Simulated assay, not measured.
Amino acid sequence: MATGLSVSSFERIDWSRPWFAPFAERGARWQRAALESEAAYLAELNRDACASGQTTGRGKPLAFIAQDDLPPGAAYEAHIGATGCVPTRRNLHDFFNALMWFTFPRIKAALNARQSEAIDELGIGPTRGGVRDTLTLFDENALLFATADPSLAEALRNFDWHTLLVENRSAWGERCEVRSFGHALLEKLIAPYKACTGHAWIVEVPNEYFSWSDAQQRALLDETTSASIEREPLASRMFAPLPVLGIPGWWPANDDPAFYDDKQVFRSGRRAR
């Protein structure tokens, strides 16, 4: 769902931000094309799609089409699954969605496959149903929390912010890290605010993960997470809320432990109570 931001909003992307930086090389090229014209933008996306060999949830070659080319009455996810063509508007919401097809291609394909299966089974109704709601939540608002330390995962699940973000601050980059995924979340982070919260999907990784290259790390997260999406019963309780600006190294103000004293943002949560 778009927020109505104009094309000029592309100029507001700050690729130095830690939530955008991993996508900067490809993203800055797309950004220039988007500011030029819709035709130039779609051509740039499709050049990358052709070069990647990426497929969607049902094995169709990935491509990007104008939103107006989606046939009347066609369901968005079902159309992607059946044709490989992703209806795409020239706005930030769809821009970040397209970037994820190249950053975590297997996760995107797995999400599309499960959505397509649910549509086949239940059709399109006034509500999506629990599985489709969870898939949409992942697609729109997920963060990938990779950790080699079960105690840090437990702190996240239990809203134990002091343990996770203050006491174990040195663990970030050595025993845990976060990767952006949700495209609606990335759109919100054009203008970051303290209460902006992602839904963290916890991924257990080996200790040596933190010495690997970025490409190796992304490949493991892509493979592990997509496998979970493909086979597990899905529900929204599988996520853990995580205020994005609280992530160590992601916002200068959180160097001060008092940053986390804001109970309106860093709440105790039902599980902690």
Score class of each variant (00 low, 15 high):
72 P>V: 09
190 I>K: 03
32 R>H: 10
120 D>G: 14
245 L>T: 04
109 A>N: 04
9 S>Y: 12
27 G>W: 12
54 Q>P: 01
247 I>T: 04
265 V>P: 00
89 R>K: 15
263 K>C: 10
171 A>T: 11
29 R>D: 13
250 W>C: 05
205 V>L: 09
168 N>F: 12
148 A>N: 04
241 P>A: 13
237 R>P: 07
123 G>I: 09
237 R>C: 09
51 A>T: 05
29 R>G: 05
23 F>P: 00
2 A>E: 09
45 L>I: 07
135 L>V: 03
244 V>Y: 09
255 D>N: 13
59 G>K: 06
125 G>K: 15
195 A>M: 12
65 I>R: 02
177 E>C: 15
113 A>I: 05
22 P>L: 10
71 P>N: 03
271 R>M: 06
77 E>D: 11
135 L>N: 01
138 F>N: 03
8 S>W: 05
105 P>D: 13
98 A>T: 09
272 A>P: 02
21 A>M: 11
114 R>T: 10
31 Q>A: 08
82 A>G: 05
264 Q>T: 15
81 G>M: 06
149 D>P: 06
213 S>H: 08
61 P>G: 07
210 F>C: 01
256 D>S: 10
88 T>E: 02
86 V>S: 02
83 T>M: 02
54 Q>C: 13
57 G>H: 04
130 G>Y: 03
213 S>A: 12
242 L>F: 11
172 W>S: 03
260 Y>V: 11
220 L>T: 02
38 E>G: 02
95 F>M: 03
215 A>R: 14
246 G>I: 08
220 L>Y: 15
272 A>N: 15
270 R>T: 10
215 A>E: 15
182 G>M: 06
68 D>A: 15
109 A>Y: 08
3 T>A: 11
124 I>Y: 05
143 L>W: 00
133 D>G: 12
160 D>M: 07
181 F>I: 02
244 V>S: 04
148 A>T: 06
176 C>S: 14
207 N>P: 04
249 G>M: 09
58 R>D: 02
30 W>R: 05
143 L>D: 00
201 W>T: 02
210 F>L: 02
80 I>M: 04
77 E>T: 03
8 S>T: 14
81 G>W: 05
200 A>S: 01
179 R>N: 04
191 A>K: 14
79 H>Y: 13
163 T>N: 05
215 A>Y: 07
116 S>C: 11
20 F>Q: 03
169 R>H: 09
50 C>W: 12
138 F>S: 03
126 P>R: 15
109 A>F: 12
71 P>L: 04
159 F>A: 09
131 V>Q: 07
82 A>M: 09
203 V>G: 03
138 F>I: 07
237 R>T: 11
189 L>M: 14
172 W>G: 01
207 N>L: 12
166 V>A: 06
148 A>R: 06
188 K>L: 08
143 L>S: 00
19 W>K: 06
157 R>Y: 05
180 S>V: 08
252 P>C: 10
117 E>A: 15
126 P>S: 15
223 E>P: 01
27 G>I: 12
121 E>W: 08
101 W>L: 03
193 Y>P: 00
102 F>V: 10
256 D>Q: 10
200 A>K: 00
44 E>C: 13
74 A>R: 10
112 N>I: 14
240 A>Y: 05
65 I>S: 01
230 E>M: 10
268 S>T: 14
45 L>V: 07
28 A>M: 13
74 A>E: 07
